[in-house]
């Protein structure tokens, strides 16, 4: 236990120190935390509950837009703000900017949680590939719908208010927003998976009919789990909105084929259904992505495709699953090497 506490203390210290030790990599590290958050939340339903959603990016995009609408709408008419041909220049004061941020980020999380509550019962009647495709359809449809709502800027997207801070400081602020959310999420999941609730969603994954027969109200458990993950993804989306400043619906907010798939790859890489798997997967994936995108430009998607094929063919349980197999001792699993003789 003390060894674990020490490990966590070191990790938290590293998290806090990172942007100051590597100031020019702060944006990279901030995005890394975004990957960790979306991977951990994807694993809540995909790994722990057995429901592989391809549509969690819906909450990311919706979080971005909700955060933006709150931050802008508190002080300005959103329709006028997004009008591309307006001649007026809106200026935002520091207090307006921060009020927008403080209300916008949690507001986005709550709204996404609410969305999950509403759409959850519609989707959780689907199983396996039907659930995956259904949720993917949700994300694609949402992107198309938003891109046709002129009040939200339509295909033009939205430009956020500009930060009054010095950019170096703002970068660190964005980093700590992501990192803070990530640490809270990790701590929450560590507790959450140890509860009866966690055991219940594992039971749903292992055998949903049996779980139901045992008296677990499966729909309620599934919807609540998805809603919790939606809250975190939505908040991460809103932070992204403040980080990117300008975003548009189809390629940034509801980017199904990028972040929407990357979060699944992260989890598969690290190991489904484990607490650390998504974190390790996100780190490995993000580093892999940055390296290939910078040094083998033109071949980056081929490299990514290759990585996915290798994981799916050779390491179906991800890195954590592989380690568990070759080093069971690390996971507290005792193997009787002499066979069952005594």
């Amino acid at each position: 236990m003390t060894k674990n506490t020490l490990l966590y203390a070191v990790l938290v210290a590293a998290t806090v120190a990172a942007p100051f030790l590597f100031p020019s990599y702060t944006a990279f590290l901030a995005t890394l935390w975004l990957f960790i958050i979306v991977a951990l939340t994807w694993d809540m339903t995909g790994g722990q509950m057995g429901y592989n959603s391809l549509g969690n990016i819906f909450f990311y995009g919706t979080g971005m837009y909700t955060g933006a609408v709150i931050a802008i709408g508190l002080y300005f008419p959103v329709g006028e703000w997004t009008d591309a041909s307006r001649s007026e220049v809106f200026s935002v004061t520091a207090s307006q900017y921060y009020t927008g941020m403080i209300i916008g980020i949690p507001g986005a999380g709550l709204f996404c949680g609410l969305c999950a509550f509403i759409i959850g019962p519609l989707f959780f009647g689907l199983r396996g590939p039907y659930f995956a495709i259904g949720t993917l359809g949700l994300a694609i449809a949402a992107g198309e719908i938003v891109s046709n709502i002129e009040w939200l800027g339509g295909g033009q997207g939205i430009s956020m208010p500009h930060s009054p801070l010095h950019p170096d400081f703002e970068k660190v602020l964005i980093y700590f927003l992501y990192a803070g959310l990530g640490v809270v999420l990790f701590g929450f999941l560590r507790w959450f998976y140890s509860t009866r609730f966690g055991a219940a969603i594992n039971a749903i994954r292992d055998d949903e009919e049996k779980a139901e027969a045992m008296g677990i109200h499966t729909l309620r458990y599934k919807t609540i789990t998805w809603a919790i993950s939606a809250v975190f993804v939505g908040m991460a989306g809103a932070i992204s909105a403040f980080q990117l400043i300008h975003f548009e619906p189809l390629e940034t907010a509801y980017q199904t084929i990028n972040l929407g798939i990357f979060m699944v790859v992260c989890v598969l890489l690290g190991g489904k259904g484990t607490l650390w798997g998504p974190v390790i997967g996100a780190v490995l994936f993000h580093v892999f992505k940055e390296v290939t995108w910078n040094y083998i430009l033109g071949g980056q998607w081929v490299a990514l495709g290759l990585l996915i094929v290798i994981i799916v063919v050779f390491f179906q349980d991800g890195l954590m699953g592989y380690l568990k197999h070759v080093r069971p001792g690390w996971f507290g699993i005792k193997v009787d090497t002499k066979g069952a003789t005594s």
Binding site: G157, H162, S163, P167, F247, T252
Partner: peptide, 27 residues
């Protein structure tokens, strides 16, 4: 539109030749 906020934030001049939308010039 995606890049201009970044260059603006750092006070880096950007001369661009391929972005024509008016929405770039009312920010």
């Amino acid at each position: 539109k995606a890049i201009a906020p970044i260059t603006e934030k750092y006070g880096i001049p950007m001369v661009e030749a391929e972005g024509a939308s008016r929405s770039l010039f009312n920010q």
